[in-house]
């Protein structure tokens, strides 16, 4: 017996149009808010990067690419690029390596309770400034908890170091700011410590999606732990690793709170990274045109790094 299905009522043209445009209207309020609080300031920053204040009148006048020329000719900018590169590499490598290791350990039949997760998350929920102040107190020259350790000449020859005040050693290659000052290394550790819980949990979640059966059959086929990780686990968690790397890169380049509270850019300019230089030019020197130019440059750097990360993290066959 065949039962004729009731004919579905066809929507009219107006209704169809409404259905098609509804998502747009629903998104519009949010888009407008984003435009007001994100797009406008971003565009205004680009506009400002071509302006300079006229001494005495306080008016902004169009000066073309002058701010960019000034920026590229300052020693501080070149130095801070070097410091940022060292910071970013150290920060990402340290955070990713430890996060993967800890996540792998946690996956080995360790039951992570809600309480443990809360405790693990503590560094992540603290503000950058608080973390910076606490880590600073560890190494303040006169009374820091770890200061005597670092000042020990047998551990740090020839005279020990003071993390916050020892200048960077002479550069190995002129113009390349390496090796970094102890303060920059300490800043990398503090920043990585703060972000570690988030990255760890992200990777742990990804690891838990890797099917045990696949790993077990690989082991039965004679694959070593390293081979399993390289050819099974890593490709499967790669999308999450990419997200984690995005997070680290963007946070690493743009974060200023930790530098501000831990080292204040010092000793000298040894920890003056791009974000701190931006703060310094904008809020201390009140040179908003130059600060805007630096913001534009930082945006380009951010975009480049993000696109590069995307490119490198794509599976080989999709390239």
């Amino acid at each position: 017996m065949s039962v004729a299905s009731p004919q579905r009522a066809r929507p009219g043209r107006g209704r169809l149009h409404f259905n098609r445009t509804l998502p747009f209207w629903l998104l519009l309020p949010g888009l407008l808010i984003i435009a007001a609080i994100q797009l406008y300031p971003a565009l205004f920053t680009v506009y400002l990067s071509f302006q300079r204040i006229e001494p005495g009148t306080g008016r902004y006048i169009f000066r073309g690419l002058e701010n960019f020329q000034r920026l590229f000719s300052t020693r501080q900018f070149i130095e801070s690029i070097g410091h940022t590169a060292i910071f970013l590499v150290g920060y990402c490598v340290l955070a990713m390596t430890f996060a993967v290791l800890i996540a792998m350990l946690l996956r080995q039949r360790v039951k992570v309770t809600a309480f443990a997760i809360t405790v693990i998350f503590v560094p992540w929920v603290l503000s950058d400034v608080i973390v910076g102040v606490v880590w600073r107190l560890f190494v303040v020259p006169q009374y820091g908890l770890f200061s005597p350790f670092f000042a020990n000449p047998s551990l740090f020859p020839p005279r020990g170091i003071s993390v916050l005040t020892t200048p960077p050693p002479p550069t190995l290659i002129p113009g390349i700011y390496f090796p970094p000052a102890p303060a920059l290394i300490f800043l990398i550790f503090a920043s990585a410590w703060k972000v570690l819980p988030f990255i760890t949990l992200l990777i742990l979640a990804a690891l838990q999606t890797v099917p045990n059966e696949v790993l077990e059959s690989a082991a039965m086929d004679g694959a070593t732990a390293g081979q399993s990780f390289r050819f099974i686990t890593l490709p499967l968690i790669l999308p999450v690793l990419t997200v984690a790397l995005f997070n680290l890169i963007l946070g690493g380049i743009n974060g200023v709170g930790m530098v501000f509270s831990l080292t204040g850019g010092g000793p000298g300019t040894a920890t003056e990274v791009l974000s701190y230089l931006l703060y310094s030019i904008g809020f201390a020197r009140l040179d908003f045109g130059l600060a805007a130019a630096l913001s534009v440059v930082m945006t380009v750097i951010n975009l480049t790094l993000v696109l590069l990360t995307l490119r490198l993290s794509q599976p080989q066959e999709e390239r």
Binding site: V46, Y47, T57, R59, Y60, F62
Partner: peptide, 23 residues
């Protein structure tokens, strides 16, 4: 990025202009 930069650079000043009188 280039389009936005050009548009913004050519736009009318958005900063409230201070009086032109010096110092």
């Amino acid at each position: 990025t280039l389009t936005l930069s050009l548009l913004a650079a050519c736009a009318a000043p958005a900063v409230p202009a201070a009086p032109a009188a010096p110092a």
